[in-house]
Write a protein that binds this DNA or RNA. Structure first.
Lengths: 245, 245
DNA sequence: CTCTGTGAAGTCATTCACAGCG
DNA sequence: CGCTGTGAATGACTTCACAGAG
């Protein structure tokens, strides 16, 4: 274990590993090797070991990893053991959908406030969770009073930077941005973009490009098309060995 | 220009460039150099030139690129000149929000069908666009009849692979997946994942990691924190030159 | 003998730096 | 001159391959 900088690619994968472990745990599996994990979920075993090794020595040589132990470690590393309080700015269609989004709960996030500029919406409650809608001019106050950890930007692109500035001033250190605009964050503030426009246009390119297929997947993308890359050769070899006595 | 494989990282950036050009065009700017584009939008000028050069020689040496020309080229390259027909599978909160999502229209996509398994919803129309909800068992028929190009998966994780299989069988070649599950696509089918769980947990890591900041941004992420990297030194130098006569 | 943890090798992406066109 | 287009250099991330623990 070396305490160097951790790439976001790594944290993304930790999240994936945790999800895989949850599946295994639900199936009653108690121990797993990096290879079997890789084979089952189409990952690369060396990558798994390297990623985990950055945070400690969680495995047992000759055996593998304890599913339950590793789950706890990853939960702690990702900070999912602590509940987070989320504010969604923009109480439109998307903001409303997010206020009720179950995925938040599963990761120990709770949406506790909505913000909007529309006088019609301010003061009401939205969604099944009955989340209160505040005046967007009160972001500073509410963020402090409600001890908000995470901001979600679900406003039109032109308003996004202003909202981010207000969130940052109020001390929010982590923001999920749905606006199709490249935001400028001050150091120490993490902004994660979910840009559907880019995703759609990338799909469009795929449809447009003659005879398709002339697109390579970058490393960071967790899509599992058929094909080599990752532990498949090894898996095949192992299979073969078993069959030939 | 060489007709090699194009990385998804490149197509993502083309999307960004197009967005930047739209801003410039709206401001009445008719010509732009890669450097000025880079300076204004915090990109790297060499990257811009390299990305564009993969598709042709669109610039004029000594001058730069025509904003209007380049817009048209990028629109064509990304396939945004052709209208796409979208089906959203899963008419829950998210599916409903997507059916009305304006970002689709802006990229020449139109949501023309929703699917669900809930008998309550089937046969009704949802959202302001009054999109019809079909029985999910009819995906094959409706995709053909409505000439669907793009599928959107907005169902629970456990149902996602089955939906993808149906979409693929019906001939859909591009899919946007919101389910937090790694899907397995056959070759030639492009699946783009929007995994909010991973995004959230990555933010959580940032909050949890002691004194934060020990996270590096991977290449693919278009976030613009303060700092070096990209053309900033050059920009500074140019500025300086202007000031000292 | 199996499996982890890790240096070394390999692959892919970005940035530099400059020849040469306009 | 300024700017594009591009090989060459650098940097980032992944995969290989193996020493050594259990």
């Amino acid at each position: 274990m070396k305490s160097e900088k951790i790439s976001e690619l790594t944290t993304n994968r930790l999240s994936v590993y945790l999800r895989c472990l949850n599946t295994l745990a639900a199936a009653g599996i108690r121990t797993v090797s990096s290879r079997s994990l890789a084979d089952q979920f189409r990952l690369n075993s060396a990558q798994i070991r390297k990623d985990l090794a950055q945070f400690g020595e969680f495995g047992t040589r000759g055996v593998g990893y304890s599913v339950e132990d590793l789950r706890e470690h990853l939960t702690k590393i990702l900070g999912l053991d602590r509940a987070r309080r989320v504010a969604v700015v923009g109480a439109g269609r998307l903001g409303g959908a997010l206020a009720d989004y179950d995925g938040f709960r599963a990761s120990n996030f709770a949406v506790v406030a909505l913000f909007d500029t529309d006088a019609e919406k301010i003061g009401r409650s939205m969604g099944e969770a009955r989340v209160r809608v505040y005046d967007a001019r009160e972001i500073a106050r509410v963020v402090r009073e409600e001890r908000i950890d995470v901001g979600v930007i679900a406003v039109p692109a032109r308003a996004a930077q202003g909202v981010l500035n207000q969130l940052m001033s109020a001390g929010v250190k982590a923001v999920l941005n749905f606006a199709p605009a490249p935001l400028h964050a001050r150091p120490g503030v993490k902004v994660r973009n979910v840009d559907l426009t880019i995703s759609l246009e990338s799909l469009s390119y795929h449809l447009a490009s003659p005879r398709a297929a002339n697109v390579t997947n970058p490393r960071n993308v967790l899509t599992y098309e058929e094909g080599p890359r990752r532990d498949r050769q090894r898996a095949a070899r192992k299979q073969l060995r078993k069959e030939t006595p």
